[in-house]
Structure formats: C-alpha cells, structure tokens
Design a protein around this nucleic acid. Structure first.
Lengths: 222, 222
DNA sequence: TAGATTGTTAATCGATTAACAATC
DNA sequence: TAGATTGTTAATCGATTAACAATC
C-alpha cells in the first residue's frame, strides 16, 4: 500500500476490446519475470519491447482500466501486477473443475502453471466408471452424476472441458445446468451456449495449422 | 476433380491478416462436421451462423485466397475443405517433434487430433536420461543431443515445446539451430527468435485468465 | 422466371500509432 | 533544471459490414 491512489475507470466505463484483455495477460506474465529478476519499476517502452508492441499500445491498453503509472518514472512492477490481477479477477483463487480424465485431462490435472496464476483444480469428472473414485495428482475423480452437487458445494464457477469432440456439447450443457459460468474448451468443436456463459476455446490442431500456414507462406515476421 | 477452376490469388498477392487465417481453420473444422453429416454444399450464411460471424465476413475471408464458391449455390464442402487445406499447407502430412516428455508432452504425444489434421508426431526429446530410449504412445524418446541429426533425417520443420518455462528459450535456440522453422510453444514465456522462425504460443493459465475476466465482468456475450 | 448466393466495392466502424502537454 | 515517461487527444491505419451487380 502506498500513497498512490489510481483513479480507476468507472465500473460501467467503456468495455475493453477482447484483444486488450488478452494483452493484459501478457503484460502480467512479463511483469512477473521482471519482478523475479529484481526490477522495481518498468516502462511502457520496456514492456512493449519484450512483447513486440509499441509503447503507445501498452499505455493505451492500461488506460482502459485506470491510471497505474507515474509520469517520468514508469510503472512499479509490484503495483501493476496487483492492478492487473484485480482487473482479470485473479487476485483470489478460483476453484476449477476438469471434465474428462483422459490423456489431456490427466496432463492438465498436473499442470503447475494453473495454481501459480490463481486457479486450483479441485475436482475431476469422468464418464468411465473405472476412473471414478481414483485420485489423479491427489485430485479426486467423480462421476458426472455428482457434478451439480459438487459445483455447488465447492463454489465452482469455471470448468475445463477435456472430453472427445463428440461428447463436448452434452458435457457443456451439463456444466451450464450445474451453474458453471465459464468454460475452457479443449474439444475441437464450437460450443453452443446461453449468453450468460462464457467460453474460451483451445484447439491444439488449429494452433499447428496456423504454424503450418506461417511456414509455407514464408515471409519473415514483422 | 471437377471442371471448376478457381482463380486463386497471385502467390504474392496481399498478405492476409492473421485473424483471417485463424478463422480459416475454424471454417475448415465446421466444414468437416458438415461433410461428416452428409451435407454436400453450404453457404457463407450457414458457416457464419455456426461460428457467430456475418456472412459477409466469411465471403471476404475466403476472397483473400481465391474464388471458391458458386453464385446462387454456395460452396461445395469437399472442394472448400480441399482448398483451405492447400492454403494452410495441411494437404500433406507434417512430421512434428515434441520437446519435453513430461506431463503435458505426454498428453500431446497421445493426442489424436493432430494426425487427423495432417500432423504426425515422429519423435520426442527429453533432457532426462531416464526417459531417453523409452517409447511413449509408440513414439521414441531421444536425447537432446540427437536433435539436429533427427530433424534432418526425418525432415522435421515444426516442433512443439512442452518444457518448463525456464528451459524454453534454450530449447527454442536448439530447435532453430537444428533447422526447425515453426514452434508451437506451451511454455509460459515469450520466445525470442530470428525473423525466419515462426512461433505460436499457447499459455494455458492465460486462457483461464481470459475466462476469469469474462466471468467477473459479467456482461452477456454479443 | 424467381430465389438464392457469390465476389467485390464502398461505407462504417474500431483499433493502433503518433504527438504532446503534464508531471516527476 | 534537463531528461524521462505518463495519460490522452488527434491522425492514421486496418478490419468489418452493408449493399449490390453478376451468376446460377
């Protein structure tokens, strides 16, 4: 806590573009690196260079949410980290469920990066009765029939879908019925969801396709 | 093969925005679903509805690459699939290496979706001597010292980095030195690469952060 | 033919960059 | 003070949408 009192934007100010919010996560990641390296302050120019953005873009992005810098000085890393975490909602720990304890779900259950950023996987669910009752990375695997009960008991609002494509839409509907508000979807399908439920899709094959395109159309970056 | 001879854009035509290329992958995914369901043709309106885009955007995106449709009719699914695969470069199979046979690497080695889209993981590499010589999902695990030799022998141009953040930059440099041209990076760091090497980053914690933001700023979609 | 739908141009909208007064 | 850097406005750039002639 310092005497610096940033004027943050009114709660119902202009809604930031999605691209701005995703850059916010990148700024946060770089700020963690800077802080770990012992740097107290940084600047829009430095953050921009680290990520290949202009300094103007960094300042503009942050300005959507308030005033976090000091003219002539820059930004205090610790303060900006705290501010971005508040904006993203990761200044607290989220309990998260994973649906699908197969190949990918297994790996996600063991992924350390989630907890470091404020996400704790507290329950896994699988359709296979052989899996139910097991613990994977010390996280219990439950039957899908227990979903609604556990979502309620554990206060789960976010879930990760790691089931085969053919099952994903049905699973998503079960999650919505259980009260989940956000879904990180690894199944290679477009989920159809009510407007109040948010989804982020990660399609691993698509990421490779984007790389394939970049390589076959070899024109240098920048 | 039909008598339809699309006039595709000159090879050095305007370079398409990145966002267009990523939507191309989504069109391809939906076209596969349509084809599997036995649909012969589709339209920009239908494709748009499936993905939440306008029909104009679908047509504009495709128009960057050529003329693939039939006025009054729409697009033949099979033809458009083939055209998009040619554009993305996935009308052939790419041999891919995975670096890091830990938690996540393990899951990626078993991911079926890669092969279905034209990517075959042919080699894994790990720094742990205990892993070297093993086979995971029938794919051999090699020592990092064999990287350059195998990249050359197997014609590997794309690699997936699934090592801890602290190791990722060094691994990336080894990949570049071995001649790899594209890197799909799962480590939560920004890689510094020469201009002729392309990277796509997937940071799993960042994806959850984006979801967290959407949920705490609960305003409905669209 | 009438209805459907493309490819493309023009109009609109939004996002990025440049510039600079204010501040430390 | 001089140098550095912010937050913000205006200018530029790029992407999306609307409209429509051409086509089947």
């Amino acid at each position: 806590m310092t005497e610096h009192d940033p004027k943050e934007r009114a709660v119902n100010g202009p809604i930031p573009p999605k691209a701005v919010v995703s850059r916010l996560s990148l700024y946060l990641r770089e700020l963690h690196h800077l802080e770990r390296d012992g740097q107290e302050t940084t600047s829009s120019t430095q953050l921009g260079k680290m990520l290949g953005f202009t300094d103007a873009q960094v300042r503009k992005d942050l300005a959507y949410f308030g005033q976090f810098g000091y003219p002539g000085i820059g930004y205090r890393c610790e303060e900006l980290i705290e501010a971005i975490r508040r904006i993203l909602g990761t200044n607290r720990s989220w309990p998260v469920a994973i649906i699908g304890a197969g190949n990918l779900g297994h790996a996600l259950l063991g992924y350390r990066g989630f907890r470091q950023q404020g996400f704790e996987i507290v329950a896994a669910f699988d359709a296979d009765p052989g899996q139910v009752g097991n613990r994977i990375e010390s996280i219990p695997v439950y039957a899908m029939s227990d979903l609604a009960k556990l979502v309620d008991q554990l206060g789960i609002r976010l879930a990760i879908v790691a089931v085969p494509g053919a099952a994903a839409q049905v699973v998503a509907e079960q999650l919505v019925a259980a009260g989940v508000e956000g879904i990180l979807n690894f199944a290679p399908v477009t989920l159809s969801l009510p407007a109040h439920v948010h989804a982020v899709g990660v399609d691993l094959a698509i990421e490779l396709e984007q790389l394939s395109f970049a390589v076959v159309n070899k024109r240098d970056k920048q």
